[in-house]
């Protein structure tokens, strides 16, 4: 997974992937290289999740019913 796509992950997607990684590591039977690669991907996801929670700013939009076609 490239860095660019990582940044595009939603919080929920990142969390889902993170949980999958932990489960995979827990299952064992991985090569050491794969384990370490998963670990560093997981660490990156932790960073992404933390950052998105810490840096998020609530956005407010306004929708005017007149602007939307309603039957």
């Amino acid at each position: 997974m490239s860095k660019q796509t990582k940044i595009d992950l939603t919080f929920e997607q990142a969390m889902t992937r993170l949980e999958a990684i932990v489960a995979q590591l827990d299952g064992g039977s991985l090569s050491l290289d794969d384990s370490l690669a998963l670990f560093s991907e997981g660490a990156e996801l932790v960073h992404i999740c933390n950052r998105s929670l810490e840096e998020a700013k609530l956005r407010m939009d306004e929708l005017f019913p007149e602007a939307v076609r309603v039957d």
Partner: peptide
Amino acid sequence: RIRGLEENLRQMA
């Protein structure tokens, strides 16, 4: 929850 997962991650590694 993230902290818990991070802890698990380190533990597993």
